[in-house]
């Protein structure tokens, strides 16, 4: 999966001009990892490994900062095809802040809460990726699950929740269990949408799929490089309404290089995993071991 993303990004960089060298723009050690920023031509990426050898957290074309550089962020925006006007959004896992930045533009009235465990990632997103939290956009520097539990206790509800807390090499296992997904569902308003950036390769795919299915039933399974799960607290809309919804933000989405022609064919509810796989729970969550190939 990450190999393919690497190729995609290299192609993108190659399109910008001839092949260019990767330049280290910034690096800082955090409590969890080293956060690195590399420029390749005009494409800037946040990485957690030297020379971005495995996987990029976020990429941004500095000449077209709005344009999405990675397919999974495009698929995450597909959540707005299920509910085009969420009034409140929670994003778990900030990265470079691509998603909140885009959502702020598309939905100027919507309150957006973001949660990021690593303060260094928040600093780098602000400094190098134009992420600017303000009165409607908050950042909480804490563990996603702790935030979710507390939000439930405080009676908060969100129309859209986006889970983007995984990277290629380490999965916070407590964010990939049936109990956590139940908590997320509780935190969703009726008809609220969950968008989760997940894994499309490795043994983990089956485990993850049955775990989501056990909490949300049927969901849309968008696959391209990564896999994005779109699920709802309530019944899924039919393709007709999805197509109708896809027109609502058509012009805004075009600025991010996100197009209905790309997204709509990806909306599939067909289960393509082994339904007999064991469900991941707080008691059984070896996600990182299962993600080894």
């Amino acid at each position: 999966m990450w190999g393919r993303i690497t190729i995609a990004v290299l192609l993108l960089a190659g399109m910008a001009s001839q092949v260019q060298a990767q330049k280290l723009v910034h690096s800082e050690r955090s409590l969890y990892r080293e956060v690195l920023v590399y420029d390749t031509g005009s494409v800037r990426c946040m990485c957690f490994t030297r020379n971005c050898r495995v996987g990029r957290q976020t990429c941004m074309d500095t000449r077209h900062p709005d344009r999405f550089a990675l397919n999974y962020t495009r698929m995450m925006l597909g959540a707005l095809y299920l509910n085009p006007q969420p009034r409140s959004i929670l994003i778990v896992g900030l990265g470079g802040g691509t998603l909140p930045r885009a959502l702020m533009q598309v939905l100027p009235q919507t309150a957006i809460d973001t949660v990021e465990i690593d303060p260094a990632v928040v600093r780098v997103a602000k400094q190098y990726f134009d992420f600017a939290p303000g009165s409607r956009v908050s950042v909480a520097e804490q563990d996603g699950r702790v935030f979710v539990k507390r939000a439930i206790r405080e009676g908060r509800r969100y129309d859209l929740i986006m889970l983007d807390a995984f990277d290629h090499e380490y999965i916070p296992e407590h964010l990939l269990t049936q109990e956590f997904l139940r908590e997320v569902k509780t935190l969703l308003a009726p008809g609220g949408v969950l968008a989760a950036n997940t894994f499309s390769s490795s043994r983990l795919y089956d485990y993850e799929s049955v775990t989501y299915a056990s909490v949300f039933g049927t969901f849309f399974n968008l696959k391209r490089d990564n896999r994005v799960i779109l699920a709802m607290n309530g019944p899924l809309p039919d393709m007709e309404s999805i197509e109708r919804n896809s027109a609502v933000h058509r012009d805004d989405f075009a600025k991010f290089d996100v197009h209905a022609e790309f997204l709509l064919p990806l909306f599939s509810t067909r289960p393509d995993w082994n339904a007999k796989t064991r469900i991941l729970t707080d008691q059984y969550s070896p996600a990182n071991l299962l993600n080894l190939n």
Binding site: D143, K149, E173
Partner: peptide, 12 residues
């Protein structure tokens, strides 16, 4: 560590 993660997270 496993038992505490659902409640307190897996922060350092």
């Amino acid at each position: 560590g496993r038992l505490m993660a659902p409640t307190f997270g897996s922060s350092i």
